[in-house]
């Protein structure tokens, strides 16, 4: 491309940006369906925008997101199972390597943090990690849904709903407790209950991290004038960082606590008795 062509392309690109910006500013509707306060409040509490779940009940949009993410992930997993995995080779290609790294990462994380007992843990953190990562990224696609009041909204990340965060945090705690019971019986329950604040901290960590991303994105998108350039950083970069960090944090904490409570406790007295007998 010559220098002249480059200048023309640059000028056309700038003109397009200015024209679209002018169009957005001139056609901006001053009367919004919700004020910024209502939008922010709804992002936190989900008390006004509900979506009908097959006519059975009205649920938060995040639950619809969760079902959608699950559906998409299971369809992709099924396609991979049917068309990709049977063609796996001993010398892997790029996609095979990616899948192996995905499984290997969570497997290694579970095994290194909980060397005594990790079969179920590895499966759990794999599911949780995939769910958190893809669930968080899901909000980037901006899938639209209509509330029961007829207002169109973009579906949020599932874990930006406190109910989803509590579900995952409590389930993680139960998984940790199950590891303790399986390894140490009643003593394992005691060791797990010692960290009674864990489900709350896990739940609210997830919720807070993802909600903050959602709030910043909502705030930015509320003012259409900020919808240029800034969302590239705010939405994509923050969402990707959230996805990576929260995935790592929850899976790592779960495997760490699981490893701690599932460590087999050896009683010294019994040893000495058996030694004396011997």
């Amino acid at each position: 491309m010559s220098k002249k062509q480059r200048i023309i392309s640059l000028a056309v690109w700038l003109c397009l940006i200015l024209v679209s910006l002018a169009g957005v500013l001139l056609t901006e509707d001053s009367e919004r369906a919700e004020t910024i306060r209502e939008t922010m409040r709804d992002a936190v509490l989900h008390d006004s925008n509900k979506i009908s779940l097959f006519g059975i009940a009205e649920v938060n949009p995040a639950l619809i997101s969760a079902f959608t993410v699950t559906g998409i992930l299971l369809i992709i997993a099924l396609a991979i199972r049917l068309f990709v995995i049977p063609k796996f080779k001993y010398v892997p290609g790029k996609f095979q390597l990616l899948l192996e790294r995905l499984v290997g990462f969570f497997d290694g994380l579970g095994t290194s943090n909980s060397p005594h007992r990790n079969g179920f843990l590895n499966v759990y953190i794999f599911g949780a990690g995939v769910y958190i990562f893809f669930g968080t990224i899901f909000e980037l696609f901006g899938l639209q849904a209509v509330t029961s009041h007829g207002i169109p909204i973009s579906l949020p990340a599932p874990l930006s709903d406190i109910n989803a965060a509590i579900a995952l945090g409590c389930l993680s705690y139960l998984v940790i407790m199950s590891g303790g019971i399986a390894s140490n019986g009643i003593r394992g329950v005691g060791k797990t209950l010692k960290d009674f604040s864990l489900p709350i901290s896990m739940s609210f960590r997830l919720f807070g991290a993802l909600l903050s991303g959602l709030l910043v994105t909502e705030l930015v998108y509320y003012y259409s004038g900020l919808s240029f350039v800034l969302p590239v950083v705010v939405a994509i970069l923050f969402t990707l960082l959230h996805a990576l960090i929260q995935t790592y944090v929850l899976t790592m904490l779960t495997s760490l606590f699981y490893g701690e409570v599932s460590e087999v406790h050896k009683t010294k007295n019994k040893k000495t008795k058996t030694e004396i007998k011997a």
């Binding site: 997993a77 499966v123 794999f126 599911g127 949780a128 769910y131």
Partner: peptide, 8 residues
């Protein structure tokens, strides 16, 4: 989540 984890 249980369905997703089992399926995955």
């Amino acid at each position: 989540f249980i369905i997703l984890t089992g399926g995955l």
